[in-house]
Protein backbone atom coordinates (compact mmCIF):
# COMPACT_ATOMS: atom_id res chain seq x y z
CA UNK A 1 0.00 0.00 0.00
CA UNK A 2 1.05 3.60 -0.52
CA UNK A 3 0.64 6.24 2.14
CA UNK A 4 1.14 9.94 2.66
CA UNK A 5 2.83 10.91 5.88
CA UNK A 6 2.85 14.31 7.53
CA UNK A 7 5.60 14.29 10.13
CA UNK A 8 6.57 16.97 12.60
CA UNK A 9 10.19 17.92 11.91
CA UNK A 10 12.07 20.03 14.41
CA UNK A 11 15.85 20.21 14.56
CA UNK A 12 16.13 20.75 18.29
CA UNK A 13 14.35 22.21 21.28
CA UNK A 14 15.04 25.80 20.33
CA UNK A 15 14.38 25.77 16.60
CA UNK A 16 10.92 26.11 15.12
CA UNK A 17 9.33 23.02 13.63
CA UNK A 18 6.84 22.21 10.94
CA UNK A 19 4.88 19.38 9.42
CA UNK A 20 6.63 17.86 6.41
CA UNK A 21 4.96 15.65 3.85
CA UNK A 22 6.45 12.32 2.74
CA UNK A 23 5.17 9.66 0.38
CA UNK A 24 5.89 6.05 1.27
CA UNK A 25 5.37 3.32 -1.30
CA UNK A 26 4.82 -0.44 -1.08
CA UNK A 27 4.23 -0.55 2.64
CA UNK A 28 3.85 -4.14 3.81
CA UNK A 29 0.80 -4.54 6.07
CA UNK A 30 2.80 -6.80 8.42
CA UNK A 31 5.25 -4.00 9.23
CA UNK A 32 5.01 -2.04 12.41
CA UNK A 33 4.65 1.73 12.16
CA UNK A 34 8.24 2.05 13.34
CA UNK A 35 9.46 -0.36 10.70
CA UNK A 36 7.67 1.74 8.12
CA UNK A 37 9.61 4.74 9.44
CA UNK A 38 12.83 2.68 9.32
CA UNK A 39 12.23 2.14 5.62
CA UNK A 40 11.49 5.83 5.12
CA UNK A 41 14.67 6.72 7.01
CA UNK A 42 16.78 4.43 4.84
CA UNK A 43 15.42 6.24 1.81
CA UNK A 44 15.97 9.67 3.32
CA UNK A 45 19.53 8.77 4.28
CA UNK A 46 20.36 7.62 0.77
CA UNK A 47 18.84 10.80 -0.61
CA UNK A 48 21.09 12.82 1.68
CA UNK A 49 18.24 14.09 3.84
CA UNK A 50 18.08 14.01 7.61
CA UNK A 51 16.26 10.87 8.78
CA UNK A 52 13.28 11.25 11.11
CA UNK A 53 14.24 10.99 14.77
CA UNK A 54 11.92 9.01 16.98
CA UNK A 55 12.42 7.28 20.29
CA UNK A 56 12.30 3.50 20.31
CA UNK A 57 14.11 0.63 21.92
CA UNK A 58 12.56 -2.72 22.80
CA UNK A 59 9.98 -2.74 20.01
CA UNK A 60 7.88 -5.19 21.97
CA UNK A 61 5.69 -2.79 23.84
CA UNK A 62 7.30 -2.80 27.25
CA UNK A 63 10.18 -0.30 27.49
CA UNK A 64 7.94 2.73 27.04
CA UNK A 65 10.36 4.54 24.74
CA UNK A 66 8.23 4.80 21.66
CA UNK A 67 5.12 6.76 21.05
CA UNK A 68 3.80 9.66 19.05
CA UNK A 69 0.45 10.89 17.91
CA UNK A 70 -0.93 9.10 14.88
CA UNK A 71 -3.83 11.00 13.38
CA UNK A 72 -4.55 12.68 16.68
CA UNK A 73 -4.46 9.56 18.84
CA UNK A 74 -1.55 8.67 21.11
CA UNK A 75 -0.03 5.38 19.90
CA UNK A 76 -2.53 5.26 17.04
CA UNK A 77 -5.89 3.65 16.42
CA UNK A 78 -5.55 0.23 18.06
CA UNK A 79 -6.38 0.09 21.75
CA UNK A 80 -3.89 -1.32 24.24
CA UNK A 81 -1.04 -1.12 21.75
CA UNK A 82 2.19 0.82 21.73
CA UNK A 83 3.36 2.42 18.51
CA UNK A 84 6.05 -0.22 18.03
CA UNK A 85 3.45 -2.99 18.03
CA UNK A 86 0.96 -1.22 15.82
CA UNK A 87 1.07 -2.93 12.46
CA UNK A 88 0.24 -1.27 9.17
CA UNK A 89 -2.73 -3.62 8.80
CA UNK A 90 -4.71 -0.93 10.57
CA UNK A 91 -4.31 1.43 7.64
CA UNK A 92 -5.32 1.20 4.03
CA UNK A 93 -3.91 2.25 0.71
CA UNK A 94 -4.03 6.01 0.19
CA UNK A 95 -4.37 6.87 3.88
CA UNK A 96 -2.84 10.07 5.18
CA UNK A 97 -1.06 9.78 8.51
CA UNK A 98 -0.26 12.74 10.73
CA UNK A 99 2.62 11.94 13.07
CA UNK A 100 3.22 14.45 15.85
CA UNK A 101 5.26 14.36 19.04
CA UNK A 102 3.68 14.26 22.48
CA UNK A 103 2.81 17.85 23.32
CA UNK A 104 3.15 19.22 26.84
CA UNK A 105 5.05 21.96 28.57
CA UNK A 106 6.55 19.28 30.78
CA UNK A 107 7.74 17.31 27.72
CA UNK A 108 9.95 19.67 25.72
CA UNK A 109 10.80 18.45 22.26
CA UNK A 110 14.29 17.07 21.80
CA UNK A 111 14.12 16.50 18.06
CA UNK A 112 11.37 15.64 15.57
CA UNK A 113 9.11 13.10 17.29
CA UNK A 114 11.34 12.70 20.35
CA UNK A 115 10.49 14.46 23.60
CA UNK A 116 12.13 14.78 27.00
CA UNK A 117 10.07 12.89 29.57
CA UNK A 118 12.47 13.28 32.46
CA UNK A 119 9.65 14.99 34.36
CA UNK A 120 8.21 11.50 34.88
CA UNK A 121 11.47 10.32 36.43
CA UNK A 122 11.46 13.25 38.80
CA UNK A 123 7.91 12.41 39.86
CA UNK A 124 9.11 8.92 40.79
CA UNK A 125 12.15 10.41 42.52
CA UNK A 126 9.78 12.55 44.58
CA UNK A 127 8.37 9.50 46.32
CA UNK A 128 7.46 6.69 43.94
CA UNK A 129 9.37 4.06 45.87
CA UNK A 130 9.48 2.02 49.04
CA UNK A 131 12.53 2.77 51.14
CA UNK A 132 13.94 -0.71 51.52
CA UNK A 133 17.71 -0.52 51.60
CA UNK A 134 19.47 -3.53 50.16
CA UNK A 135 19.86 -6.35 52.62
CA UNK A 136 17.37 -5.16 55.21
CA UNK A 137 14.22 -7.12 54.42
CA UNK A 138 12.55 -10.01 56.17
CA UNK A 139 11.57 -13.24 54.43
CA UNK A 140 9.42 -12.62 51.40
CA UNK A 141 6.58 -14.83 52.58
CA UNK A 142 6.40 -13.06 55.92
CA UNK A 143 4.32 -10.40 54.21
CA UNK A 144 0.90 -11.76 53.28
CA UNK A 145 -0.91 -9.90 50.56
CA UNK A 146 -4.44 -10.70 49.50
CA UNK A 147 -4.40 -11.94 45.94
CA UNK A 148 -6.90 -9.31 44.88
CA UNK A 149 -4.71 -6.51 46.19
CA UNK A 150 -1.63 -8.02 44.64
CA UNK A 151 -3.47 -8.21 41.32
CA UNK A 152 -4.74 -4.64 41.57
CA UNK A 153 -1.25 -3.45 42.44
CA UNK A 154 0.08 -5.31 39.43
CA UNK A 155 -2.57 -3.70 37.20
CA UNK A 156 -1.29 -0.30 38.26
CA UNK A 157 2.37 -1.31 38.22
CA UNK A 158 2.05 -2.31 34.57
CA UNK A 159 2.58 1.35 33.59
CA UNK A 160 5.46 1.66 31.14
CA UNK A 161 5.93 5.41 31.57
CA UNK A 162 5.47 6.16 27.88
CA UNK A 163 3.64 9.43 28.50
CA UNK A 164 0.69 8.70 26.21
CA UNK A 165 -1.67 9.67 29.04
CA UNK A 166 -0.13 13.11 29.18
CA UNK A 167 -0.19 13.44 25.41
CA UNK A 168 -3.86 12.48 25.13
CA UNK A 169 -5.06 14.59 28.05
CA UNK A 170 -6.47 17.90 26.86
CA UNK A 171 -4.86 19.44 29.93
CA UNK A 172 -1.53 17.61 29.61
CA UNK A 173 -2.00 16.17 33.07
CA UNK A 174 0.13 13.30 34.33
CA UNK A 175 -2.56 12.04 36.66
CA UNK A 176 -2.78 8.52 35.27
CA UNK A 177 0.99 8.03 35.47
CA UNK A 178 1.26 9.39 38.99
CA UNK A 179 -1.92 7.70 40.13
CA UNK A 180 -0.63 4.38 38.85
CA UNK A 181 2.51 4.52 40.99
CA UNK A 182 0.67 5.82 44.04
CA UNK A 183 -1.89 3.02 43.62
CA UNK A 184 0.68 0.31 43.04
CA UNK A 185 2.52 1.11 46.25
CA UNK A 186 -0.53 2.21 48.21
CA UNK A 187 -2.28 -1.11 47.65
CA UNK A 188 0.57 -3.09 49.18
CA UNK A 189 1.50 -3.34 52.84
CA UNK A 190 5.09 -2.44 51.97
CA UNK A 191 3.93 0.94 50.72
CA UNK A 192 2.03 1.98 53.85
CA UNK A 193 4.71 3.64 56.00
CA UNK A 194 5.51 6.24 53.35
CA UNK A 195 2.01 6.61 51.97
CA UNK A 196 1.35 10.07 53.36
CA UNK A 197 4.67 11.57 52.31
CA UNK A 198 4.51 9.87 48.94
CA UNK A 199 1.17 11.39 48.01
CA UNK A 200 2.16 14.89 49.10
CA UNK A 201 5.55 14.84 47.42
CA UNK A 202 4.56 13.24 44.16
CA UNK A 203 1.55 15.50 43.75
CA UNK A 204 3.65 18.57 44.54
CA UNK A 205 6.14 17.51 41.89
CA UNK A 206 3.32 17.37 39.34
CA UNK A 207 2.80 21.08 39.81
CA UNK A 208 6.50 21.87 39.76
CA UNK A 209 6.85 20.12 36.42
CA UNK A 210 4.03 22.13 34.87
CA UNK A 211 1.53 19.38 34.18
CA UNK A 212 -2.11 20.38 33.92
CA UNK A 213 -4.90 19.16 36.17
CA UNK A 214 -7.07 16.11 35.80
CA UNK A 215 -10.65 16.74 34.78
CA UNK A 216 -11.64 13.08 34.99
CA UNK A 217 -12.63 12.86 31.37
CA UNK A 218 -10.87 9.61 30.60
CA UNK A 219 -8.86 10.35 27.44
CA UNK A 220 -5.81 8.94 29.22
CA UNK A 221 -7.19 5.49 29.92
CA UNK A 222 -8.47 5.24 26.36
CA UNK A 223 -4.95 5.47 24.96
CA UNK A 224 -3.03 3.73 27.73
CA UNK A 225 -1.22 0.80 26.11
CA UNK A 226 -1.39 -1.06 29.42
CA UNK A 227 -5.07 -0.25 29.95
CA UNK A 228 -4.55 1.36 33.31
CA UNK A 229 -7.90 2.44 34.68
CA UNK A 230 -8.63 5.93 35.97
CA UNK A 231 -9.55 4.30 39.24
CA UNK A 232 -5.85 4.86 40.01
CA UNK A 233 -6.43 8.61 39.79
CA UNK A 234 -9.18 8.39 42.33
CA UNK A 235 -6.84 6.47 44.63
CA UNK A 236 -4.25 9.21 44.24
CA UNK A 237 -6.88 11.82 45.03
CA UNK A 238 -7.96 9.91 48.12
CA UNK A 239 -4.35 9.52 49.27
CA UNK A 240 -3.63 13.17 48.70
CA UNK A 241 -6.76 14.21 50.57
CA UNK A 242 -5.98 11.93 53.49
CA UNK A 243 -2.33 12.97 53.49
CA UNK A 244 -3.18 16.67 53.52
CA UNK A 245 -5.24 16.05 56.61
CA UNK A 246 -2.85 13.69 58.38
CA UNK A 247 0.55 15.12 57.69
CA UNK A 248 2.01 16.93 60.67
CA UNK A 249 5.02 18.10 58.79
CA UNK A 250 5.21 21.64 57.60
CA UNK A 251 5.38 21.81 53.82
CA UNK A 252 8.97 21.77 52.81
CA UNK A 253 10.95 24.23 50.78
CA UNK A 254 10.90 24.22 47.02
CA UNK A 255 11.35 20.56 46.11
CA UNK A 256 12.33 21.46 42.58
CA UNK A 257 15.79 22.30 43.81
CA UNK A 258 16.31 18.68 44.72
CA UNK A 259 14.92 17.28 41.54
CA UNK A 260 16.44 19.40 38.86
CA UNK A 261 19.03 16.76 38.17
CA UNK A 262 20.39 17.24 34.77
CA UNK A 263 19.35 15.35 31.74
CA UNK A 264 21.85 17.14 29.62
CA UNK A 265 19.00 18.95 27.99
CA UNK A 266 18.40 21.71 30.45
CA UNK A 267 20.91 24.40 31.10
Amino acid sequence: MNLTLHIWRQKNASSPGKMVRYEVKDVNPEMSVLEMLDVLNEELTLKGEDPVTFEHDCREGICGCCGFMINGVAHGPQAATTTCQLTMRHFKDGDELFLEPWRAKAFPIVKDLMVDRSALDRIIAAGGYVSAPTGSPQDANAILIAKENADLAMDAAACIGCGACVAACPNAAAALFTGAKISHLGLLPQGQPERVERALNMVAQLTVEGFGSCTNIGECEAVCPKQIHIEVISRMNADFRAASRKSRKEPYQDPSEFRRWSFGLKS
Partner: peptide
Protein backbone atom coordinates in the same frame (compact mmCIF):
# COMPACT_ATOMS: atom_id res chain seq x y z
CA UNK B 1 13.10 -10.88 49.93
CA UNK B 2 14.60 -7.65 48.68
CA UNK B 3 12.24 -7.32 45.75
CA UNK B 4 9.13 -8.05 47.79
CA UNK B 5 10.18 -5.43 50.30
CA UNK B 6 10.43 -2.90 47.50
CA UNK B 7 6.85 -3.58 46.51
CA UNK B 8 7.38 -5.77 43.47
CA UNK B 9 3.89 -7.21 42.86
CA UNK B 10 4.77 -10.87 42.42
Amino acid sequence: DQCVAQGVPF
